[in-house]
Amino acid sequence: MKHKGLDADGYFEREGSLGRVPAAFAGVVAAARARTAEAYGHRLHSAYLYGSVPRGTARPGRSDLDLLLALHHEPAAEDRDTAEVLARGLDEDFPAIDGVGILLHGKENLLSEAERYDLGWFLACLCTPLLGADLAEHLPRYRPDSLLARETNGDLAAMLPGLRARAAAASTPEELRRLTRGLSRHLVRTGFTLVMPRWGGWTSDLAESAEVFGRYYPQRAAQMRAAAAVALDPVADPAVLRAYVEDLGPWLADEYAAVHGTKTPR
């Protein structure tokens, strides 16, 4: 029996499937499969979708397309250039999507012990196979425990200086919206994984994540609900970014370290 994203034994159920892709996104998913295979050829081990498109919750014209590509080697400059061209072409050719994000990783890194509870978990539980042999077959099953919480999102404190610099440098409305959307998502997901072991389950829904967080930290619930709303409808407001990097982010980083510890250095 399904319960909070877990199977009957308390392990994560893999979210998303190609069967859940909304009809409005079928064309771009087919193009992503074909163009990825053509662009990377023998360099590619496998490709995966993640995010709202394979979960079936994507909104035409509002949602982005997210891809994880596993290469036979560690990504080089040529691979990153290929990803940039691929992403730009898909974004320009398919109005159903608002942006394309492509993550590149070497196969050995994805399967490494160091990444077992971060990238490995991400691939095995949150990614939907699109091309090639599924690396999840070589990874363990996962539970929503404190180890997973620490290794997935226990690096917020280390990220904050860079985020402050990016927030200070953002000037155009497009830059502000892009950064606000990304940081909102990150804070909401970090807030959720902070309480994930106590809640005993998993959700990728940002609104639900904020609500679950708020049950354990009512004094911060309104801030997290607002961040979830901004993640879906980003704003070009520098004040929102300042509040994230000067208030909510530092508090969340300190609380996370106190509850779960900090992410193992890579």
Rank of each mutant, 00 (worst) to 15 (best):
D9G: 01
F12M: 15
F12L: 15
R20P: 09
A30I: 04
A31M: 03
Y40V: 06
H45P: 02
S46C: 15
A47G: 11
G51I: 01
G51R: 00
G51K: 00
S52C: 02
S52A: 10
G61H: 14
H73W: 03
H73Q: 04
E84F: 08
E84Q: 13
L103F: 06
L110Y: 00
E115D: 12
C125T: 09
L126M: 07
C127W: 02
C127Q: 11
A136I: 08
E137N: 10
L139K: 14
Y142P: 09
Y142E: 10
R143M: 00
R143H: 05
P144K: 11
R150H: 08
A158H: 10
P161M: 13
L163F: 07
R164W: 01
L176Y: 15
G182Q: 04
R185C: 04
H186F: 06
V188P: 01
R189L: 10
T190P: 03
R198P: 00
G201H: 15
W202H: 09
A207D: 14
E208S: 14
V212P: 07
G214N: 08
R220F: 01
A231W: 03
P234E: 10
A236I: 11
A243G: 13
Y244M: 02
V245Q: 05
L248S: 03
G249W: 02
W251R: 03
A253S: 12
A253E: 01
V259M: 14
V259T: 15
T264D: 15
P265W: 09
